[in-house]
């Protein structure tokens, strides 16, 4: 279980997270929604340890997070964050190349690529030769390559057309179900929320404004959540220019 309590983080003197409390159970798929600049990426980076929080605690299975946490996670970055200098299979098998031999790592990488619907012929291509949708799939293959216990998804459908976004959402749902992993997704794409989430948390003004099962979104009365789900410009959330 991932437990976040009273998390604070300021960037450039501006408070971004102002006391975030959140619990994500084992095997649960939690989607964190919120507008641009709400602090979703900062929250996920604090959970991962890529940023140091100014205050609050993050515990993994009731123990403080250690460096070993990275051995148990997979991460799909918004832009893919694939290594340009390495071919696709070495990107996917990056973590495996330290333990397994090269041929074995390549075999596993090709298996993982197949799991996300990619054929073995792209294994030797470089990331610059792939389309946006393929980059996301390769990123997803890399995230699941080392059989993680927790997978983080940062805006998994951003920049994709609606059909490819649907494909990626389905893949994420399928991968999470097949592997039985805990999933933490940040997005502002409502279609992702419906496809991926067990539980939804809305981050606004540096705190979790609303949290509940996906099924309760439709009946929720919180005006912030309602405005966000409807995508309306009329409501308590003001656009930041």
């Amino acid at each position: 279980m991932i437990k976040i309590a009273g998390l604070h983080k300021a960037l450039g003197g501006k408070p971004v997270l102002q006391g975030v409390d959140l619990q994500i159970g084992k095997g649960e798929s939690c989607v964190i929604i919120g507008g641009s600049g709400a602090g979703k990426s900062v929250l996920i980076k604090c959970i991962l340890g890529l940023m140091t929080p100014d205050g609050g605690t993050i515990t993994i299975n009731d123990a403080p997070r250690t460096r070993d946490f990275m051995d148990d996670i997979g991460m799909l970055f918004q832009g893919g964050a694939l290594f340009d200098s390495l071919p696709v299979w070495q990107n996917v098998g990056f973590k495996l190349l330290r333990g397994a031999d090269k041929a074995q790592a390549r075999d596993i990488a090709i298996t993982k690529l197949a799991q996300v619907g990619l054929t073995p012929d792209i294994a030797d291509r470089y990331p610059s030769e792939l389309s946006g949708g393929m980059l996301k799939r390769v990123g997803l293959a890399r995230a699941i390559a080392a059989d993680p216990k927790v997978i983080f998804f940062d805006e998994p459908t951003t920049g994709l057309d609606p059909i490819m976004a649907g494909v990626i959402n389905d893949l994420i749902r399928q991968v999470v179900a097949d592997l039985g992993v805990t999933a933490v997704t940040i997005t502002h794409d409502i279609s992702s929320v419906h496809a991926i989430a067990d539980k939804v948390a809305m981050l606004h003004d540096g705190v979790i404004r609303w949290i509940g099962p996906k099924a309760e979104i439709a009946t929720a009365t919180d005006p912030y959540l309602k405005q966000f789900i409807l995508g309306s410009s009329d409501g308590p959330i003001r656009s930041r220019w």
């Binding site: 990275m70 970055f77 964050a81 694939l82 990056f94």
Partner: peptide
């Protein structure tokens, strides 16, 4: 230029998440 590009495209963060 190479490392700076890796930094701004989150490849450095990706290395960390890959225990590297």
């Amino acid at each position: 230029a190479e490392i700076a590009t890796m930094k701004v495209t989150e490849q450095i963060d990706a290395l960390l998440t890959l225990s590297t």
